[in-house]
Design a protein around this nucleic acid. Structure first.
Lengths: 129, 129
DNA sequence: CTTGACCTTCCAGTGTAGTGGAAGGTTGAG
DNA sequence: CTCAACCTTCCACTACACTGGAAGGTCAAG
């Protein structure tokens, strides 16, 4: 499979595949005599893994780490569990923070509802933000 | 007030103040004969406004827009209300999305709990991600 | 008068995950 | 043989809000 075909099958772009290789997420592809990359179908599992990792909100750096453990011959189970725990805690924190932000903005918006333009004439930029 | 002093009083850095001026958030500061910026105390209300806007999750571009309306002599009330509404919807959407992500990751983590390393030996990168 | 803290401008880099485009080589169908 | 469609590398750029550092000018205390 050439890079464009793989990109189409995997639902990405040739540009992104080269980028992934560059970033160490894909091992350097085999080349034809003329320098074209060519791939076997087993690469699809790796790309699917990358996509699943992204769907779970892992960074490419984290995904690369898992792949490198895998490539070194070790099962990355423990590391993956650890990353999922970290990610879970991060998401919980983000949700909590956004909840607080929502509260703040909601209050500002409520206060802004009943303000007359005249009140805005003060020296401040805006009375209710 | 010189820029360093203002930065300290306002809880920011001189670098950031120059950046804000550059970005159009602060009007060009008056200069001394030798080229030093100097500020009156009224600048503090503007900086506080910028900080409140950031705390509400507005981008500097949005804050600049409000300030420019203000600077043009119009009360920015309507625009601020509109921005708060948009921001509220964005935050709600982000919270919803993070909730879905949390669900996904939680399920992956639960599934990963009871996996034996041997299961990882399959051709795939990782059985449970 | 010197020294150190302050100020000036300008250029470059941070992190994330790519995207855009130029310049040039290869492939395969007609 | 030609031509479009594909491939290659390399460099620059996106958004966001700054931050770092170089090179040089200014100010105030001692």
């Amino acid at each position: 499979m050439r890079i464009g075909e793989l990109a189409q099958v995997a639902g990405t772009t040739a540009k992104t595949l080269r980028f992934y290789e560059d970033q160490g997420l894909l091992l350097p592809a085999a080349r034809t005599a003329s320098g074209y990359r060519h791939y076997g179908p087993e690469i699809l599992a790796r790309l699917d893994f990358i996509h699943r990792g992204q769907a779970a909100g892992l960074t490419l750096a984290q995904i690369r780490q898992i792949l490198q453990i895998r490539d070194s011959g070790t099962a990355p189970c423990d590391h993956v569990r650890e990353l999922l725990d970290i990610r879970l805690a991060e998401v919980d924190e983000q949700i909590a923070e956004l909840g607080r932000l929502r509260e703040t903005i909601g209050q500002l918006r409520t206060a802004a509802e009943h303000v007359q333009p005249e009140t805005c004439q003060a020296g401040a930029v805006c009375a209710y933000l």
